[in-house]
Amino acid sequence: MSVATQDSGQTRIVTVTEPRIDAALAIRFKDDMRTATKDAPERVVLDLAGVEFVDSSGLGAIVGSMKQLGAGRRLDLAGLTPLVEKVFRLTRMDAVFRIFPSVDVAMNPEPD
């Protein structure tokens, strides 16, 4: 598995355990995400703090992971490292996801 899971209240935290979500991992990552979120509560937070590299295939796999959650559940992102943040910003995917600096902040967000 390229991810590890932990539930906290009504949130499932999915931590990526591989340093690169790239073309070589993308298909397996999306499958692992399906397994990791199959019986997940309404909210899933994907912890990317340990990921130093995401390419367009990896980005597509993260988008696909959100889509396969289906309506009524949502995927938030946390802990983007600088390169990963740049890929999300350039492709404007930073407007599609709620992004938090860390899992801690994602679990205790400031009120909007």
Binding site: S56, V63, K67, T91, R92, A95, V96
Partner: peptide
């Protein structure tokens, strides 16, 4: 081309966009 985010979200087509951006 700029990814089209108006409809169903694309899962690909970002590669050449990133190349030309950077």
């Amino acid at each position: 081309e700029t990814p089209d985010l108006s409809g169903p979200l694309p899962e690909g087509g970002f590669g050449w966009f990133l190349i030309h951006q950077l």
